[in-house]
Amino acid sequence: MDDVWGDADDVDFDRQMAERNWNRLQDTHGVAGYKDGVIEGKEAHIQAGFDQGYAQGVHIGHELGRLQGILAYASLVAAKDADVQRRVFKAHPTDEDLRMLRVLYGEIQSVTPDTMFTPDFFKLPVPSALVGDAANAAAAPTDLLQQQIEPDPTADIAFHEHTVHFKDKLLAALAPLVHDSILVAVGLS
């Protein structure tokens, strides 16, 4: 009987040791593989991410910059050049009008990449082709990069919210002051 119990203990011990060794192998080599995979995955796709972000950034920034340029120079010419002032404004702008334009300009200018591109903006689902088959992703990076250029609905929402918001405010501020033909010409009306 003693021998039988002794064999059972040995079997349990061997099983435990085998599990430990298995787990240790998994931890050691799995983690090493994971680290390598992370590095390779990042290296392979960081440029695609940059390209996608660049296109979004230029698009959004350009529209906000346009509003800045229009507003900055509307304010500038209103203050400095009587002739151009008459061409721009329906009537002589008051100090309060100019103050209001400058406040609005400050608001638009305060939109920085930090305020525009919040963490929510980047909470995007990565296309399934990239997460579904890592091995395939490594084998055909070109196809996957092309998929990244597709329009991004979240960017459109952010773009819409910011530009429409400021466009509406700018139109509300300028409409009573500026000739209608100028508003039409710069695409505000």
């Binding site: 799995g30 593989g33 392979a44 796709h45 972000g53 992703a137």
Partner: peptide
């Protein structure tokens, strides 16, 4: 491990790049 890491690396790379 590499496949798991690559999948996460793609996400991280895309995000950093964006």
């Amino acid at each position: 491990g590499w496949e798991d890491g690559y999948r996460d690396g793609v996400k991280a790379g895309m995000l950093e790049g964006r």
